[in-house]
Design a binder for these strands. Structure first.
Lengths: 220, 220
DNA sequence: AAAATAATTTAGACAAAACTAAATATTTGT
DNA sequence: ACAAATATTTAGTTTTGTCTAAATTATTTT
């Protein structure tokens, strides 16, 4: 696999987003910031290699082989992101560009050892799941804390209300995007929720809970 | 700088080996496992970019700019080697191939953070010195333990006598290539030397000391 | 110092991955 | 259903880095 081929496979994978529908040439071109004609060329090559199913004018989808290839790239990308954030102290929103490069390094041993070194993480710093070596992985969903059952565990990935007041609140209480958070208890009376975040317990109001998105792995 | 350009710069740097003499087209071709005509093409391009001094039929040498580029690649390569050995538990002789790939990752921040994370190492697992960010580095020399003064510190990089008996001795005493070793004291009487290796002190005979090579940084 | 040998460069081609412009197929609006 | 709009593909170039074969320059031998 060349670097460019890998990028196409990954783009098709991300556009597919789990669904089976074929992806259009234009969509790929836009995602890759390239021209549709270039996409057609590459698709033909990938089709030769049995990475994609392709019928002229009908779009493409990944074959089994293509899927596995995509998952292996996603695995590498996300493991490297964990490395950059956990070990090298990058902020969660600075890692993408570098991980884009690192994901193309070819060495199975390297990835195995990296995985072990990082403690076999299941999610990356954005809360997205990391596929296992054989291409299995849990789907993740993004939900408000207020919508989640007791015991849920996930990564803070976004806010509903991005008012200054709310962001200041998060800051003051040392809640940052990328932090791991577990829901301990919910008070029926006022909807307030007690949570564990960064090994610290605290209670947040329903207002807060319904403005903070968590990315969680679906119960298998 | 493209990947290929970087590889040429590095090859020229290594062939130069510190000296100023121009490097021949054929030598580069051999090192890069490519054809002399391809080398000529690339040299022209690098010359355009002021990375090398080039006079037709007279070979090439790196310019100041080329030197710095080469040193930055070497720095990356060796830092990644330290990472692979120290953190991911690779053996010292398995890291080269992977480091060849990692050295091309483009992110100054990444290398700075990696350097810090590794504790600003001065030498790689082979005992070769790691250039600093601004391209300075200490030259290293390879000497037998018996030839070195008290207080010397270096990395075990080779043996003079590779008899089974000697290698078994090293193995039994948990001395491996790549280990860091410091010379603590030398007994005039029999030439035996006490050393510190892997935070463990031990005494070795003159016979051992004159069969084990250390790579050390030259006193600045 | 000329002839033979070796090293280097030039010229012309090729593959990969991109592009532009033109041609063709599909979808949409009425 | 058919014309207009949109999407996709084809054909022909370009760039980067490589190659082979031929030409040129340098070095070595005698």
């Amino acid at each position: 696999m060349t670097l460019s081929e890998e990028d196409y496979i990954k783009a098709i994978y991300h556009l597919g987003n789990g669904k089976e529908d074929p992806i259009s040439t234009n969509a790929i071109a836009e995602q890759m910031e390239t021209k549709p004609s270039s996409v057609t060329d590459m698709i033909k090559k990938l089709s030769e290699k049995n990475m994609v199913n392709y019928k002229k004018y009908r779009g493409v989808s990944l074959t089994e082989k293509g899927q596995l290839t995509a998952l292996s790239i996603v695995r590498k990308h996300r493991l490297w992101e964990v490395f950059l954030v956990d070990k090298l102290d990058f902020a969660w929103d600075e890692v993408h560009e570098v991980a884009e490069q690192l994901e193309h390094i070819k060495s199975e041993k390297l990835i195995d050892k990296l995985d072990t070194y990082l403690g076999n993480p299941r999610v990356d710093p954005h809360g997205d799941p990391i596929p296992s070596k054989d291409g299995e992985f849990k789907k993740s969903v993004k939900k408000l804390i207020s919508e989640l059952p007791i015991g849920s565990k996930g990564v803070c990935v976004g806010v509903n209300d991005s008012s200054v007041a709310f962001l200041k609140f998060l800051d003051k209480n040392q809640i940052a995007l990328g932090d791991t958070l577990k829901i301990l208890e919910r008070e029926d009376f006022d909807g307030s929720v007690s949570i564990k975040i960064n090994d610290r317990e605290m209670r947040i109001s329903d207002q807060i809970a319904s403005n903070l998105f968590l990315e969680i792995l679906e119960k298998s």
